[in-house]
Design a binder for these strands. Structure first.
Lengths: 168, 168
DNA sequence: CCACGACGTAGACAAATGTCTATTCTTTTT
DNA sequence: AAAAAGAATAGACATTTGTCTACGTCGTGG
């Protein structure tokens, strides 16, 4: 009824740039990424997700505008998806649902704040060690060039950072 | 009752690192900044605010933990402040308040997402032009070294970027 | 009015990061 | 099993950005 199951295979899109984001999806099993592609064809990962995380483009979902992002599956993934209409209906009918989403938003805000702080404050090494502290569950699920992109550095720089960390 | 007025003079703290954030404040008039200070004593601006913006450390406020941030007034500022207790009371009593905060959180999330995307995707010049597009109301309210810090670059680099932009 | 501090700019140099190519090792596909 | 693609690393080199010092302007407080 409210949540519908959806299976995606590796590399399959959940959302493509230019589409409107009609669903928010909860990852039951699998791993996903959200990213933009610049003029040169380079992907910039802005979000990664694994089990128990929600994926979707909030801006497109809320404003009903074309999305600037792509979201696809990095592993075969099982989701539960929620439409905007269902969400608004739930919001109007269920105080518990409102409370739930409020907490999710709060957590999301806090996580974004932390990431932003790390992103503007430090060196590549700092960003990587912050990432290891903060998201150990993501390490190993994605290859290094994906994580590098998530951190806003190149895979070569990440490789150097790791080499330096080894020697300590 | 719910919102209490508070006046701050330039350089006066609204929140200091280590304190718990007991209030969220709405800026009626003035300009403020939120920042960390690293081991070397360098300030890293993570948020700026002017009229009609809310200021506070969400993580400390929600979790009731010591804050990692400082918030102070950059101009003489008038605020309306809200305690966590009042907010929770309002949340339990007023659906309209819940709806209001939900929308604020949504917008906040969207803004953070955009800033993050800009922060990891581009050069110093791109970050600055994105900033000009996105927050024209902040330009002129803060000196360049503050804006540079907000963008995660040095004042020298920002000065170079501006010089290059002039010549086009 | 003067002195001082804050601010912006500039240039020289250093350090960090990006770019590119090559190599090796997996993993996947056929 | 062979071939192809993906992933990680390395080194050489280019570019960007940071660091430091100096200088000029401006506004503010004494």
């Amino acid at each position: 009824e409210v949540l519908a199951p959806l299976k995606l295979r590796k590399r399959q899109y959940f959302l493509q740039e230019g589409e409107r984001c009609r669903y928010f999806g909860f990852i039951v099993k699998g791993a996903m990424r959200q990213y933009t592609v610049d003029e040169k064809g380079v992907e910039h990962i802005i979000r990664l997700g694994v089990e128990n995380w929600w994926m979707g483009d909030r801006e497109s979902w809320v404003m009903n505008t074309p999305s600037a992002y792509n979201i696809d599956a990095w592993e075969d993934t099982e989701m539960l998806i929620l439409t905007r209409a269902s969400a608004l209906e739930m919001i109007s009918k269920s105080p518990a649902f409102v409370e739930l989403t409020r907490r999710l938003d709060e957590r999301n805000n806090i996580a974004n704040q932390r990431r932003l702080t790390s992103s503007i404050s430090g060196t590549a090494e700092k960003k990587y060690t912050d990432f290891l502290d903060c998201y150990p569950e993501l390490v190993g699920r994605f290859p290094q060039h994906i994580i590098a992109s998530y951190l806003g550095i190149t895979k070569d720089t990440l490789s150097r950072v790791r080499r330096n960390l080894m020697q300590k």
